[in-house]
Amino acid sequence: MSFAFFLIQLLNGMQYGLLLFLVASGLTLIFGIMGIINLAHGSFYMVGAYLAWSLAGMTGSLTAAILIGIPLTVVLGMFLEWLLMRRLYGRDHLYQVLLTYGLILVFEEMRSILWGDDVYGVKVPDLLNHSIALTENLSYPVYRLGISAVCLLLAAGLYFLIKHTRLGMMIRAGASNREMAQSLGINIKLVYTLVFALGVALAAFAGMINAPVSSVYPGMGAQVLIICFVIVVIGGIGSVKGAMAASIMIGMADTFGQILVPEVAGMIVYLLMAVVLVWRPEGLFGRI
């Protein structure tokens, strides 16, 4: 591997890592910060991708699809929280697992009824539909770099929200002690509804923005679900910084694993998780 290609692979790893962070960000909020086990995260991702496809088909523009799609998914998140999730906060995690697993099945079936079982493609917006030449025969799609930029912005925003805003304080207070926060006059019900809705919207947003790159297909949610949990666990429960670090680590491990040790490339992410958890059971930036 020449030095130029090594640099390109670094870029690949970084870009893939940022993409993973984008997909995992909603889970960081719902599972990482609020402690709700949400197996339906992948389904929300899928819903986002299918929304992007169908709305982009109607409006002719992915940007418009995202602008319309986000409020829709926020409403979906608030509705689900109001109808289902809020009944389970006081209960054991097992109930959350059962409920959100049920949601996966419901969303898969609804997807099949509403949108069918075909593979669909979403067009990259014209503005970003270019490539930058890197070597004589390799170039880099601008859209992917655009996604990376969005991921960085999103990470910064999320970090700021949790650490430096009043809402973030309420979220953290509610996560560490629900009753206490409530008796201090925080409308904890509303906070939870908002956070859950934000988590759903983030997952859906990831699906939307990723749709032109990944295509839109049945079962696409299941593919991202496991890696998202791996990221939150490696990063440490409750840490946006940790999730970011874990995403980049996994992006790099996966990229270089495929090239340097192809025989075990499929395992390498999980090996990494095992090593991290042996070394720091609470995750990279976890506080337990």
Partner: peptide
């Protein structure tokens, strides 16, 4: 070249092909 199944992240191997 092998991609872990059913992963669909090809960027690293496409770079390899280019080299």
């Amino acid at each position: 070249l092998f991609v872990p199944f059913p992963q669909v992240e090809f960027q690293a191997l496409l770079t390899e092909i280019a080299s």
